[in-house]
């Protein structure tokens, strides 16, 4: 009973809130830059618009092109279920959850990249090669930094990691933890396709990565693709949020506790959005060839985090 409620809540939440969060970030950015920005419901309007439009598919494209939006959408949705959002319990939880999370994201990416090359557009191919380059850099770092948390909690199940985290309280703020969080933050921003790595707002062919792959899509598939990329953004933000203190173990019998947990989650989310937007307004996008510098640095950060945390554990610092 309890778990099905969570599943429903989480699915609904992911589906419904993700366009809003994206628009919210746009709006925040606009305000910080002294513009008016889009209305907060713009994301939903866009989706509605796409779903009403006609779908045009290139003659060269095969079945991969048409199933890709569905695959990407569903894999992202399932991935979203692995991450604890408002509660410390995720909808799906089992050992190895973080690995599955990465594979699901990878699956979506694989299909997206293959589909982008299908119609044979020049920019799509370029964008997908860039996406693959980025992902080869992003994935190891993400895995490594998540493993740091996993080694600390001695579990690769995100829910049990959360349980462990909320048991630790502030004693958890160890160097290893913070460095790992930093590394995770950098790769999450990269994975979201946000500013130091990619700019979601330009459609300037030479710089775009993610947008470039969607160039050949139209109508409903395009809507789905957008929606799933927003969902991915939300799920990564939630992932980050779940590692920010304070944590709260929810008592599912009391409504007040549930509401408090939701409020806390939303606050963390808001804070993260603000942070990402602040980065976006203050830092310029780096050249594509320097992206690997930044990701290399985050990889080393993750390694340092791993060393520090393992070291701490063996030297008898924190008991898992």
């Amino acid at each position: 009973m309890e778990s099905s409620v969570i599943v429903l809540l989480q699915v609904g939440f992911m589906l419904l809130l993700s366009p809003f969060i994206n628009t919210l970030m746009k709006k925040m950015k606009a305000i910080l830059q002294g513009r008016q920005g889009p209305p907060l419901m713009q994301g939903y309007y866009d989706l509605l618009k796409y779903f009403r439009k006609e779908t045009v598919v290139s003659e060269q494209a095969s079945w991969i092109f048409s199933i890709t939006p569905l695959v990407v959408f569903s894999s992202t949705l399932v991935a979203a279920l692995i991450i604890p959002t408002f509660f410390h319990v995720a909808a799906i939880n089992f050992l190895g959850g973080i690995i599955l999370l990465l594979y699901l994201l990878g699956l979506g990416r694989f299909f997206m990249v293959s589909a982008a090359m299908e119609p044979g557009g020049g920019f799509c191919g370029m964008a997908s090669s860039r996406e693959m380059m980025l992902s080869t850099l992003i994935e190891p770092v993400m895995l490594l930094s998540l493993f740091v948390f996993a080694t600390m909690a001695q579990s690769s199940n995100l829910t049990s990691i959360m349980n462990w985290l909320s048991g630790q309280g502030l004693a958890l703020i160890t160097p290893g933890y913070i460095v790992a969080f930093l590394a995770l933050m950098i790769v999450c921003i990269a994975e979201m396709g946000r500013v130091p790595f990619d700019n979601p707002e330009t459609h300037y062919e030479l710089t775009m990565i993610h947008e470039g792959m969607l160039l050949e899509y139209s109508g409903k598939p395009l809507g789905l693709m957008f929606w799933s990329s927003w969902m991915k953004q939300l799920l990564l933000l939630s992932l980050l949020a779940s590692f920010i203190p304070p944590w709260k173990i929810v008592d599912f019998t009391s409504l007040q506790s549930i509401l408090m947990a939701i409020l806390l989650y939303l606050l963390k989310l808001l804070f993260l959005c603000l942070f990402v937007v602040l980065i976006e307004t203050t830092i310029a996008k780096v050249r594509l060839f320097r992206v690997k510098d930044l990701l290399g640095a985050s990889f080393v950060l993750a390694i340092i985090a791993l060393i520090l945390s393992v070291h701490q554990a063996t030297a008898g610092g924190i008991k898992p």
């Binding site: 290399g296 640095a297 080393v300 340092i304 060393i307």
Partner: peptide, 11 residues
């Protein structure tokens, strides 16, 4: 980037 990675290995 390679040297950063290598220095990670060194660490």
């Amino acid at each position: 980037p390679t040297s950063m990675l290598l220095s990670g290995g060194l660490i």
